[in-house]
């Protein structure tokens, strides 16, 4: 059992949970993720680790409400226990000194990006970060990102904060200004697709951290499979990071929609049940 020791709302639908998990806090590196399942009837869902405190024995998870399972998680409070939490899973980010790193985070993708930025900064790189979201409320973890970035560019779709425009516009601005040696893009699949097209145009090596549907998270089921460079890869054991220019994002987008109908219905059911209860 893993107790929730702190909870913070980043926005209406995005919550940070600090959870007791001493072993994971110690073992996790940038790039790792966990699988969470709450209650006997809960679903196993993958979540990225935004940070940890090995001394305190806690990890930080950022959860966005996208379905019943994530919604239920965000409804837990400090003191509640999560029944099942396993990790750290996946391969850790390969970090080295390359020069200038352009890190791009879209929406809650900033959460897994944060430890990666930190690691690249500590490895002696110049780090420029582009944070992108639909509006000001959805820009998260900006302060922490600033700590490990030499420069931060904020982009919002509606211009309510930072520059008005898409993530790719912010990226182009930097790329046209200076030499970038490596790019890291994390966010919704559609954002990663376009961000990686942008860097491809400029021949900048790019890695993307993929968040697919998962069940076990240990290579056992194949639910997480994606095509990378024409080969089938399992995100949970071969990834989650891959060469973004090799990833078939269109297929990934399609596969992500696999349970959309069922999930929407389940969420509506859940919400209406809750309303009736109140």
């Amino acid at each position: 059992m893993n107790k929730i020791v702190a909870k913070e709302f980043f926005s209406e639908n995005v919550v940070r949970l600090e959870i007791e998990a001493p072993r994971i806090a110690k073992a996790r590196r940038a790039g790792h993720f966990v699988i969470v399942k709450n209650g006997v009837d809960g679903e196993r869902i993958p979540l990225t680790i935004a940070g940890s405190d090995p001394k305190k024995g806690t990890i930080d998870l950022v959860v966005q409400r996208v379905g019943v399972s994530s919604r239920k998680l965000t409804e837990l409070n400090v003191g509640d226990e999560i029944t099942d939490l396993v990790g750290p899973l996946g391969k850790a980010t390969h970090v080295e000194k390359v020069g200038t790193v352009l890190a791009c985070g879209g929406g809650v993708g900033v959460a897994p990006l944060l430890p990666i930025i930190e690691a690249f900064k500590l490895a002696g790189n110049r780090v420029i970060t582009v944070l992108a979201a639909r509006n000001k409320d959805l820009i998260i973890l900006e302060e922490q990102v600033r700590k490990y970035s030499d420069e931060v560019v904020v982009m919002t779709d509606d211009g309510s904060y930072g520059n008005k425009g898409l993530v790719t516009e912010g990226m182009e601005m930097i790329i046209n200004r200076e030499k970038v040696d490596l790019s890291v893009v994390i966010g919704p699949a559609i954002m990663m697709k376009f961000a990686s097209m942008t860097t491809k145009k400029h021949n900048i090596p790019t890695m993307a951290s993929l968040n697919t549907i998962m069940v076990d998270g240990t290579g056992m089921c194949g639910a997480c499979r994606v095509t990378v460079g024409g080969k089938v890869k399992f995100v949970c054991v071969d990834g989650p990071e891959f060469d973004a220019h090799q990833v078939d994002f269109d297929e990934m987008l399609l596969r992500l929609s696999g349970y959309k109908g069922i999930e929407k219905e389940a969420e509506l059911n859940y919400l209406s049940k809750n309303c009736n209860a109140k």
């Binding site: 076990d216 089921c221 194949g222 639910a223 499979r225 297929e251 399609l254 596969r255 696999g258």
Partner: peptide, 15 residues
């Protein structure tokens, strides 16, 4: 083989 609705027996049975 990666179309929606195609899954491994491990995934199907695990679910």
């Amino acid at each position: 083989e990666n179309y929606i609705g195609i899954l491994s027996s491990n995934e199907y049975l695990t679910r």
